[in-house]
Design a protein around this nucleic acid. Structure first.
Lengths: 325, 325
DNA sequence: GTGAAAGCGCTAACAA
DNA sequence: TTGTTAGCGCTTTCAC
């Protein structure tokens, strides 16, 4: 290539990267040769030399059921979009909510493959991510807060939306409000439950542990927890994640329980498919696209050398009112 | 690293890759040094030297609405899973159904970044992919068939499921069956419409062009096309994609049109959220995970040197019966 | 304004 | 059984 244009490889490099002055004449020769040879600079060689791959990793915890994935897929979509504008590529990897798989993938990433990592950690409570991630690239945590502040972290304050939801139900006269959630002990679940309790307390309603139903976050568990709650006479239900929201809606529809007259319901996460139910579902909406966008922006700043202290960002969730409450 | 273990770099390489015999003693020294230095082989250098990155690209055409993305996200998820088992990583990229964006991303991929590409092409009818893809890596096309057979291609025979669906409606006594579809001219839409026609013909029903409604694949268009069809007196509706399925269901529910008594409906794509409607929706299910899996397997075979003639694979779609027809 | 040449961290042929 | 060494295709310093 260089000899085709009759210049040195250095000049070719500088023409391509616009990294020092090159005479117009010379540029033309280079461009012509590039055209003729259909030349593509080798990005691997470039990465090796410049110690920069322009690839960032995304590690998310998807599990089998499609529904629970939408949230992370939506984030991934947002991230990819913003990243491309900055000239980066995205390696997508799935930890399957399995710590071993996750740690293993981090090791793969530790081989200089990526310039940065965005991760929704499997175990944000117990596990020490410092150990593996003490690394050569910056990291941004999303959705779940690791126990040590070792990176920028972007969370959704799902408490705010949840509080609004419960408050609304209370002011509409509901006193027995059921709360359906997946396993506690992860920050997101805990936060939503705390907001539920806070709202009850602020409105002088007693907290009844019997009305808080916990089970693995599946459609069927959503169904059966709803059945239990209906039996115990609740007039309103809050479902704290999207899969269980679906199970709850399904049970109410199947039993022809009138919504919101017999039982009001507010679900979690705002997706198109919620619009098909009658009445359409009210939900707490999480700004997933914005989360992805902010995570990318923070990451790129770090890659470019930002040394400010790490921060935790919380994006507010929002109550979207439709007909179900 | 090599000097730490007091061996040559070649030996280190061979220990790591198990690529020639090394004495146990030596191995131990190397492992010890690796441990002590927390050594990670540099995958970029390895890629440069071995001309293999162990990364494959996936290029899908997502658009804004979340619903239409589920199909490709589901495929991506399947691909990633299988790929990881083979020690590959996945670069995910989105063409946004925009040919220019797609061609641009292909150029990025052409810089030796990837070992292979799985692509759901934006324009499978007009555009000539040979031009850009005459490349250094094998390609597998998915979901849409390019005009020239230049790669293995994995399609879903959505005609089979569609035919079964229409046939079922006919045998249940429906004579005026509406057909809702996104823009024609892409293989998937055309195939489904052809199956609709074929079923009518085989059961000696006239084909009425008025009952075929075409519009951009959006929720709202699904709604309005359904309204038009209901006005013209159809007793059954087939929606040929997932977004418009949702719009159709929404309209019927909103108008309190009894399903399936007044209007029977069969939709497209099988997702969890279809279970929440009452009655649950019957659909034509596309084997997206299997598609991803097969695509990966074919691609890896090509990467490993398979030279057999290119083939088109068609995975059958399947009618899933629930209560809506 | 441009070129020569070192070297990024590996792999693999060749040599011993 | 292991070491030496030549590159992979770039970027970048230093020199002219």
């Amino acid at each position: 290539m260089a000899q085709k244009a009759d210049v040195s490889t250095a000049t070719v490099s500088h023409v391509i990267n616009e990294t020092r002055y090159v005479a117009e004449e010379t540029k033309k020769k280079v461009y012509a040769a590039m055209e003729e040879l259909d030349y593509r600079p080798n990005s691997v060689a470039r990465s090796l030399r410049s110690r920069k791959s322009n690839i960032i990793g995304l590690l998310v915890p998807l599990v089998a059921s499609d529904t629970s994935n939408f949230f992370f897929m939506s984030i991934a979509n947002g991230i990819e979009q913003v990243l491309k504008e900055h000239g980066y590529n995205l390696i997508l990897s799935n930890s399957s909510e399995d710590l071993a798989v996750e740690q293993n993938q981090i090791k793969v990433f530790n081989t200089q493959l990526i310039d940065g990592l965005i991760i929704a950690p499997v175990d944000s409570v117990e596990h020490d991510y410092q150990e593996n991630l003490r690394g050569n690239y910056p990291t941004v945590f999303i959705d779940r807060q690791p126990k040590d502040l070792m990176s920028d972290t972007v969370l959704i304050d799902s408490g705010s939306g949840t509080y609004e939801a419960i408050k609304l139900l209370i002011t509409k006269g509901h006193h027995k409000i059921g709360f359906i959630t997946g396993p506690l002990g992860i920050t997101t679940s805990d936060e939503r439950l705390a907001a539920y309790k806070a709202a009850l307390e602020n409105y002088d309603l007693p907290f009844d542990p019997e009305l808080v139903k916990v089970a693995p976050a599946t459609f069927d568990q959503g169904r059966s927890l709803t059945r239990e709650l209906v039996k115990s006479g609740v007039t309103a239900i809050f479902a704290a994640n999207n899969v269980m929201t679906m199970g709850a809606v399904n049970y109410l529809q199947e039993q022809s329980i009138s919504v919101p007259d017999d039982v009001a319901i507010i679900g979690f996460d705002d997706y198109d498919w919620l619009r098909i139910t009658s009445p359409p579902l009210s939900v707490v909406k999480q700004p997933s696209f914005e989360l992805g966008k902010l995570a990318v922006e923070l990451l790129i700043k770090r890659i470019e050398g930002n040394q400010e202290p790490y921060q935790v960002y919380r994006l507010p969730s929002e109550l979207v009112l439709r007909g179900s409450c």
